[in-house]
Computed example of a mutant assay.
Amino acid sequence: TIIDDSLKYLRIMFAGIPVVMAYNILASILRALGDGRTPLYAMIVAAVINVALDLLFVLGFHWGIQGAAAATVIAQLCSGIFCLLAISRVEVLAFTREDFKMEGTLCLYLMKLGLPMAFQNAIIAVGGMIVQFVVNGFGVLFIAGFTATNKLYGILEVAATSYGYAMVTYVGQNLGAKKIDRISKGMRSALIVAMVTSAVIAAAMLLFGKVVLGCFISGSPEDVAVTMNIAYHYLAIMSVFLPILYVLHVTRSALQGMGDTLLPMASGIAEFVMRTGTAILLPVFLGEEGIFYAEILAWIGADVILVTSYYLRMKKMKALQSS
């Protein structure tokens, strides 16, 4: 029954992939213009619609898992339409019939930029599935604790993702204007803000993590206590090392803003190797404790490549500008 319901959910979500792609493209265009508010408003609208439709489809129409999936796709469609309406008001982006003619050179260039990023995200996702496979061998309570903490991963990462979007736009604009020094200054400022933000989020998780985790954990008092210890221990480890993740997002996005998607892809491969290698090998020596460091070492592996690549690329660009 679980497999059947999962397949129903996946089929509807996969059918909605064009909707997700449309939103991502439209939101990226807006961010490239320096408009980060409209994509945010679009996601707020989508979240409200999603909740409302979940209640209507699941509780009202009794459509179950299929209703929840349909609500998500419709909400994402609304967010895409919201961004499209905003773009239609930008004069320089007004569509004409000629704009829909395919240009081979431009399509190839966009594929060259996009495919490495797609591959990077794919291998990171596969690495996550391998880690989950390893986790599944440690018992129900460990799975519950590990999963509860992963539900908070979005909160830990949310600001890092936002800074990443900002850096792609900022670096791309300054590179186009040939203001290389401004890229360096912006990078330093972004890293400082990222470090402060990650420290604040980490402190909040360490202080109030158990309260938040309690929203995702249920069962008998004994099971809840064991699950909570596992979940909070994992959360504490990720919180302490959170600055590493923020460096990853800022640096990777800076390189992407320079039009370099190959090195970020290489960092994704490093993440995959470190995450899966740690998940498979460390538990042999450290038991359950070893699995908690798979994510941390994946971040470190990516950072080594990204920070080094950024430094060398900036050094090269500054040399070319001064010559």
Rank of each mutant, 00 (worst) to 15 (best):
Glu295Ser: 01
Val193Tyr: 06
Tyr109Thr: 15
Ser323His: 08
Phe142Thr: 11
Met111Gln: 09
Lys178Thr: 07
Val284His: 10
Leu26Ala: 14
Ile217Leu: 10
Gly209Thr: 01
Val140Gln: 15
Gly36Glu: 04
Met167Ile: 06
Gly209Tyr: 02
Phe133Ala: 15
Tyr232Gln: 06
Ile305Trp: 00
Ser6Val: 13
Met111Thr: 07
Gly209Ser: 08
Ile269Trp: 06
Phe61Asn: 08
Cys215Phe: 13
Asn121Trp: 09
Phe146Leu: 01
Gly214Lys: 09
Phe142Trp: 03
Ile130Thr: 06
Thr72Asn: 11
Ile280Arg: 03
Leu263His: 09
Glu271Asp: 13
Tyr310Gln: 08
Lys112Arg: 15
Arg97Ile: 07
Thr147Gly: 09
Leu156Ile: 14
Phe82Ile: 05
Gly257Thr: 06
Ile87Cys: 04
Ile81Phe: 10
Ala298Gly: 04
Asn50Asp: 15
Val247Trp: 03
Ala279Lys: 01
Gln76Met: 10
Met129Trp: 10
Thr276Lys: 02
Ala266Pro: 01
Ile269Ser: 01
Met117Arg: 02
Phe285Glu: 06
Leu255Ser: 01
Ala15Val: 03
Ala46Gly: 10
Tyr311Ala: 12
Leu10Ala: 15
Val51Trp: 13
Leu93His: 12
Val126Ser: 08
Leu242Asp: 00
Gln120Tyr: 02
Ala68Thr: 02
Ser189Glu: 13
Ala71Val: 00
Thr149Glu: 09
Tyr234Arg: 00
Phe216Pro: 06
Val20Ser: 13
Ala294Gly: 01
Val19His: 07
Asn150Glu: 14
Val171Thr: 05
Asp5His: 08
Ile74Glu: 02
Gly127Ala: 09
Tyr41Arg: 10
Phe146Arg: 11
Phe292Asn: 00
Thr197Leu: 13
Glu91Ala: 12
Cys215Met: 11
Met111Cys: 14
Lys101Met: 09
Tyr232Gly: 03
Thr261Ile: 07
Ser253Glu: 07
Ile155Leu: 15
Gly219Phe: 15
Ala71Leu: 03
Gly114Thr: 10
Leu85Ile: 12
Leu312Val: 15
Ile280Trp: 05
Phe138Asn: 03
Gly172Lys: 04
Met187Val: 12
Gly154Ala: 08
Phe14Lys: 02
Thr278His: 06
Phe216Val: 11
Ala199Phe: 14
Tyr310Glu: 08
Leu113Glu: 04
Thr169Gln: 12
Val51Cys: 12
Ala302His: 02
Leu59Trp: 07
His62Arg: 11
Met102Ser: 06
Glu157Gly: 01
Thr72Cys: 07
Gly287Tyr: 08
Ala32Lys: 10
Thr38Met: 12
Ile3Pro: 04
Ile291Leu: 10
Ile3Thr: 13
Gly257Glu: 05
Ala202Ser: 15
Tyr153Met: 14
Lys101Thr: 07
His62Thr: 06
Leu286Arg: 05
Phe95Cys: 05
Asn24Met: 11
Ala225Trp: 06
Gly80His: 01
Asp54Gly: 08
Ile280Tyr: 13
Ile296Lys: 00
Thr251Phe: 13
Leu263Lys: 04
Arg31Thr: 07
Leu312Arg: 14
Asp4Gln: 14
Ile192Leu: 14
Met13Pro: 11
Val224Asn: 04
Gly214Thr: 02
Phe133His: 09
Phe142Ser: 04
Tyr234His: 14
